[in-house]
């Protein structure tokens, strides 16, 4: 009886170790072999009771440019979205499909509806395209540094407005992408890692 119990216990512990281990292996592969893309972002600082404090990343290029009458996926539907790089070296979403793309990098994303841009000057809104939820929206940081990160980044980068009222930031996330999975490698402010940026400001 005890032998059977110990055997079941062994299987249980093996399973408990296997799940986190497979998570590590999968994500290490993305970090090692994934292609690097830059996503323009602006960080905000919230907290998670289990995983600690992080900066929440809001992305600008989270949409595919499309006219108002474009064919769109169902709300919340997960589809494959292809990626490309714009002349500034930043990532942009180029198209979507229900089938896995045969060439190039892609992400599997949830569709969030049409994206509009509000122009405060002439109080009008402009249709931008189809918006998707980029899943890599958390960058975990030391609990004492995350609130500073938001404050500093805001004071350095979010003080400029383009004519059409788009927020201009020079803050971006380096994201490694492989087989539809994206993982944040680092968040950079003016080309400096956010961690180094905070360390410099604290000196």
């Amino acid at each position: 009886m005890k032998k059977t119990l110990l055997l079941i216990f062994g299987i249980t512990v093996a399973l408990q170790l296997l799940i986190p281990a497979s998570m590590i292996l999968k994500h290490e592969k993305v970090m090692r072999d994934g292609s690097l893309y830059r996503f323009k972002t602006h960080p905000i600082d919230p907290a998670d009771p289990f995983q600690g404090r992080y900066v929440w990343l809001g992305f600008e290029n989270d949409y595919i440019i499309a006219p108002t009458n474009a064919v769109e996926p169902a709300y919340n539907e997960r589809v494959y979205v292809t990626l490309d790089t714009d002349p500034d070296g930043l990532c942009k979403l180029t198209g979507w499909s229900r089938n896995k793309p045969e060439h190039g990098d892609y992400l599997k994303l949830k569709y969030w509806g049409e994206k509009y841009n509000w122009n405060a000057k002439d109080k009008s809104q402009r249709h931008l395209g189809l918006q998707f939820k980029l899943p890599f929206d958390r960058f975990y940081m030391d609990e004492s540094k995350a609130p500073n990160a938001e404050r500093l980044v805001r004071s350095v980068t979010l003080n400029l407005f383009e004519e059409n009222t788009n927020l201009v930031t020079n803050c971006w996330a380096n994201v490694k992408i492989l087989n539809g999975t994206g993982l944040i490698e680092d968040v950079l402010v003016d080309g400096t890692s956010i961690r180094d940026f905070i360390a410099q400001s604290e000196k």
Binding site: Q16, I19, P20, M23, I24, H27, M31, D48, F50, Q51, G52, Y54, P135, F136, D137, R138, F139, Y140, L183, I184
Partner: peptide
């Protein structure tokens, strides 16, 4: 400890929050 282990891996790789799956 099971929850702590999964949460720390999520934090290490900056994984998106998927609370129901977690």
């Amino acid at each position: 400890a099971i929850g702590g282990c999964i949460a720390l891996i999520g934090q290490t790789y900056h994984l998106p929050s998927d609370m129901p799956a977690f």
